[in-house]
Design a protein around this nucleic acid. Sequence first.
DNA 1: AAAAATGTTCACAGAATGTTTACATTTTCA
DNA 2: TGAAAATGTAAACATTCTGTGAACATTTTT
Lengths: 229, 229
Amino acid sequence: MNNKKILIVDDDEDLSFIISEMLEGCGYSTAHASTAEEAFTILTDSKFDLILLDINLPDSTGFEICRQLRETSSVPVIFASARTSEDDRITGFDTGGDDYIPKPYSMKELLSRVNALMRRTYGFGNESGEMGFGNVKINTASRTVAKDGVAVNLTQREFDLLEYLCRNKNTAIPKDKLISEVWGAFSEVEPSTLTVHIRWLREKLEDDPASPVYIKTVWKLGYILEDKA
Amino acid sequence: MNNKKILIVDDDEDLSFIISEMLEGCGYSTAHASTAEEAFTILTDSKFDLILLDINLPDSTGFEICRQLRETSSVPVIFASARTSEDDRITGFDTGGDDYIPKPYSMKELLSRVNALMRRTYGFGNESGEMGFGNVKINTASRTVAKDGVAVNLTQREFDLLEYLCRNKNTAIPKDKLISEVWGAFSEVEPSTLTVHIRWLREKLEDDPASPVYIKTVWKLGYILEDKA
DNA sequence: AAAAATGTTCACAGAATGTTTACATTTTCA
DNA sequence: TGAAAATGTAAACATTCTGTGAACATTTTT
């Protein structure tokens, strides 16, 4: 798998441990938060590919976390709860959740749902994980990039940024959206940071970094990865 | 734009009717198949944006339909069934399904799940779309404009102005209205500013900016974007 | 036909925004 | 542990955008 990162938010430490063991065994990497506050802290400095949210938390609810998350991020969310009422399920979906799994659930079922949502969100048959534009090829499985067949060394951030741009090829993306998607939903990096990373990408991928052909600036908005083909 | 098509595959005619009534009431359009064979026929001649699959069918199973579907398509699938065993749910997800909803379910819950999956698949409130007039194409997603297939560079204001004119194609818009819509309700820019921006648009989009064919002046009122087609 | 009213064109200066560079700090890895 | 790489930041610099009024043109009114 692609080494996707999953955040587990649940105050049941034992259950969380079992879940994270299981998911890591299946090739995911995980982090864990026991409270909403802890979740926000973790989400401030890293980015996740899927979030598993318990609804009952000591200091808040999963719904509330999801609601705040959705203000800046479209990261996939699965709610989990012992509350099984239909109203809860509906609230879950309407808050912006993607799935709702009633407790208790088996690890097998959780895994199936996680896989299904990952598949839906990050692409089908993308086992090969090939993307690209112009003379640039991106392999998401190996996280490598090649320009004209020659390997280009990108840092982690550079790769994430490029991958996001490429997934949204030919769409102008606002700076703040780009930051929340690449740095994490609640990250607070300066806008200039994004500019600098864009600069590095251009340096590594454009023939003339000062007048880019692919990674273009959209004034007063953000950036766009243009690929005519 | 938002008129997504949903195929309902279920041999319970009454239930299917209620579902389709409800979904259509919510702005979706629907089609219905009672058997797997019928489903394949319908899927042969038209494309759907989401498929609701009952698992028990007289001549086959929903799983089987999904399996065949997935050989060529990544259309979102929701399974529905009175079979509630965990194995069934897991089979559903592993066959390539995106969600599994146990029968009986309420219309409210079904709608929530349909909406959630549509949102995940087709984007979050993306009002991205194509507009245009004459030989000019406007792409609101990439915020790009092309004349005769050739990209034209517009500034932010120019784009906003053009977009507003185009959304109100063939309608004469008073100057002050145009200013408050494009510059903001309480803006206090001089009327001449609008004139100048109109001029720039004409320069970039009209063959002869001095005698415009599309962006016309309406004396003593404002401007109009005319598009005969 | 002349005067009045309204719209167009143009060049420019300041505002707003993006880029580049150098540097301090953190992380990674030999 | 120490060197190299990666990361985030701020400040100087460059570019692009924007609004304006004055001169000019056109339409309407008298």
